[in-house]
Write a protein that binds this DNA or RNA. Sequence first.
DNA 1: TATTGTTATACTCTATAACTATA
DNA 2: TATAGTTATAGAGTATAACAATA
Lengths: 146, 146
Amino acid sequence: MLLALSNVLTDDQERELDRRGLTPARTHVLWLVFHEGPRTQAELAVALGVSPRNVTTLVDGLEATGFARREPHPHDRRAVLVTLSARGEEAMRAMDAEHTELGGQLVAGMDDADVETTLRGLRHVLGRLTQLIAEHEARADAEGRT
Amino acid sequence: MLLALSNVLTDDQERELDRRGLTPARTHVLWLVFHEGPRTQAELAVALGVSPRNVTTLVDGLEATGFARREPHPHDRRAVLVTLSARGEEAMRAMDAEHTELGGQLVAGMDDADVETTLRGLRHVLGRLTQLIAEHEARADAEGRT
DNA sequence: TATTGTTATACTCTATAACTATA
DNA sequence: TATAGTTATAGAGTATAACAATA
C-alpha cells in the first residue's frame, strides 16, 4: 500500500549509536526491557514482532557490548530473562531525556489550544488507521480461509 | 535520539509486495522514478540516501522482475537512465490511487475545521523537526572539523 | 583527475527448519 | 506433546574499497 517510512534517525544519530555498538534493532530490545522490565526472549520476540531466532542474535549483540545480560528464569529452567546492565540503564535514561526535550522543542511557539487540537486530530487519524488495518487484515484472513 | 519507526506496511501488505517481487527498497526506487522521471543510478543513490553500489543491486532486481529497465544515457556513455516498464508504471499508478483513497478514509468523520487545524499543527511540527535536525547536523559538522 | 557503475567482501536484520533441554 | 532457545542456512538491504570505462 505504502512506502516504508524508513527511519526517524538522522545519519549522525545512527553513526553515534553504531559507535557505541547500539544498532536500531538492539536499541528497540533495550527500550522494551527498560520500559516493561526483564522479559524472556520468547516474550521479546512477540513484542518486537520478530522470530525467536532473531532475538537470540540481538541479545547476543547486547551481551557482547555490555548493555544487557541473560539471567536464569526463576521458575523455568528453559527460559532466560533479558535484563539491563548499568550501562544499558544509563543509555535508556539518556534516550528518555532526549525524547522529552524533543517533544517540548517540537511544539515550541504553538499556543496551547493549537497543540491540543493537533493532538486530537492525530489521535483521530491514528485511530482510523488502526481500524483500517484491522479491517484489511480481517478481510485478508477471511480470503485466506476460503 | 530515537527508535526507528520501522515501517508503515502491515504484514499482509509486505507479503503482497513480496509475492509480486517488489521489496520495500525496490518500491522506493520505482516510486522516485515514477514521480520524478528517469534518473541515473548516481542520482538515485543521492535521492535515496544510499551508496551507488546499493543502487546497482536494487536496479538489478527491478530489471529481473520486469518493473524497470536500464537505458543508455543520451549524453554520457558512462551513465544509464533507470526507466519504468509498463508493469512498473501500472504498479505505481495503483499505489498512488491507494494513497489518495487512504488519505480520504483517515480524515473521514472529522469536520473541515479540525482537519485544517490538524494539518497546520503537523506542518509546524515537521518544520521544527527539520530545523532541529539541521541544527544538530551543523553542530556535528562543526565538531567534526575541529 | 573526477565520475559512473561494477566486482568483491562484509555486517545487520530478518526468516524457516531442525535440534536440545525442559515443562 | 508443547515450549524456550539454539545451531544451520538463506535472502534483503546496507556499507567500503578497488577497478574499468568514460568525461
